[in-house]
Amino acid sequence: MKKKKLIITILIIVVVAGLGTWFGMPALLGAMGFHPEYEGQRYMLPEGKALIICTSHDRLGEGGKKTGVFGSEFTAPYYEFTDGRMAVDVASIQGGQIPIDPMSFKWFLKSEYDERYLSDPELQEKVEHSLLIDGIDFTRYNIIYLAGGWGAAYDLGFSEVLGRKITEAYAAGRVVGGVCHGPLGLLLVRDKNGQPLVKGRRLTAVTNKQVEELGITMTPQHPERELRAAGAKFESETAFRDMFANHTVVDGRIVTGQNQNAGSEVANKMMMAAGGTRR
């Protein structure tokens, strides 16, 4: 009899603890500032086009852990652009299958945008067969958005093609930007005088502090370090862990977000900068 009682008690504790973790963990992360719900003004750009560019690099170092683009950094802007009535294309440095950081869709980390992606065959198809940037005329898009993730530290800042294409788009009056490691893709972009675009411009990206806190320092480029070195006026917020901080900067037609928390806000501010209207 006593044994039975004990078993029942243990069962109840396990169930309660399990449910508590299941519901509590995402709620706790949310309360700390991870993937905050965007409550600001939303914008739309009907008949406009946006291009989301992701990394094609899928490993942390030689034979290291799998990585790629961080999920919400392309899902959040994709759906904000789509809800903003834009047509959205997805491209990558090498085209084809885009690697996604396996951490992105862990149950305690995934955002509402990620949920939507996981049940959306259309976007899954676009990620599976992403466009190769080389064949795209960037000036056909109103918005060029660069997604981050650790993979981006290996290719966005080194692609001459990407640098040239964004240079053309910016010169044609388009809005450019991105979040987290995405702004590395602006390093090789030139303004109309042939100067580095980021020089003297206000922008943000993932901080050295966040890179160190997460202990992933083996990547070849760290956004804060490279952007400061290129002469950008780097801004950021901080928190007891920087992955919970959120910051967005609009400098003319350059819109950047500090990390994965800024995807939806950056998307909306890009639509605003591109002449969008309130929705």
């Binding site: 739309m44 009535r85 209207t277 309130r278």
Partner: peptide
């Protein structure tokens, strides 16, 4: 209509 400023 879409959301629209003149309506607002």
């Amino acid at each position: 209509t879409l959301p629209c400023e003149s309506l607002r």
